[in-house]
Amino acid sequence: MSEKKRVACFFTAGYTELNAMKSFMRKINDGVEYIQLCPIGPRKSKGAIKDRHKHQILKEQNGMTGEKLIDFAAEFIGKKRFEEEGYEAILIEDDKDGRFLSVQEDGTGIIDEDSWKCFKNRVIERLNKIRPDIPVIFFYAAPEIEAWFLADWRNGFGNVYKDVYTVRQNEYFSIKFRKYVNDSILTDTYRNCIERYGYFEEKYRKLSAEIQRALQEIDFLEDYMPEKEHPTISYSKDKQGGAMLECVNPKTILQNCSFFFKDGYQSLQTL
């Protein structure tokens, strides 16, 4: 039996099936046993969800994000099973999305440190009422996990399509797409502080949706070669997200994601 510290993990991500998030965590602290406790999808009887679109959203979100995820964690840690397993910490992984941001006068967002601290304290208090003194680690991707894949471009989006493209095609794509991301998605406002990303003229844009739209609508190899000579690509959290999570370097991400990611990174390292 492993003698590593056992951490009860509540990973919300849909690529849980690949255990990619655990691999990523091990890059930060390999002296810990990460036990994923979120199911890979929402409970549903066959035929219960007939709307395919709704099913897809639920699948991507795992049915548990935000408060639902905290509720699930709180319910689970109260069970006898939790005590028997000897967990020494709880780790919650989620996408921050538009939370913990304040919208400024210019319609852009800045990190609201107080609301973040308040949230963490509230969750810790709630979970510690059930399991006193158990450390709680918050591993929040801000605004979403795609920020990590952009922060470590070389191992993230710059690398993930290399099995689809040739080496030259991928190099060209990487340069073009990166420029597009910096100029058109992140813009000057968020290029160097991706964790603040989201608000433009007080309206929230979802980073993953912007990336998906860009890859669906724009052919970044158009100038390089005609369409029929290169494969088309798309992006999904499940497929490409999982693959990138296996490759990206937490230390590189830390350089660009210096608040939310750093919080989780440091907490995990010192466990």
Binding site: T16, C38, R43, S45, K80, R81
Partner: peptide, 28 residues
């Protein structure tokens, strides 16, 4: 008794299909 509340509206297969932690979780 631990499983009874989980199986109120679900079957064992429903939980197993999604790797519910109450029934062993997803293979790791």
């Amino acid at each position: 008794e631990e499983m009874r509340p989980e199986l109120g509206e679900w079957t064992l297969g429903d939980l197993y299909r999604i790797g519910d932690p109450m029934i062993g979780g997803w293979p790791q």
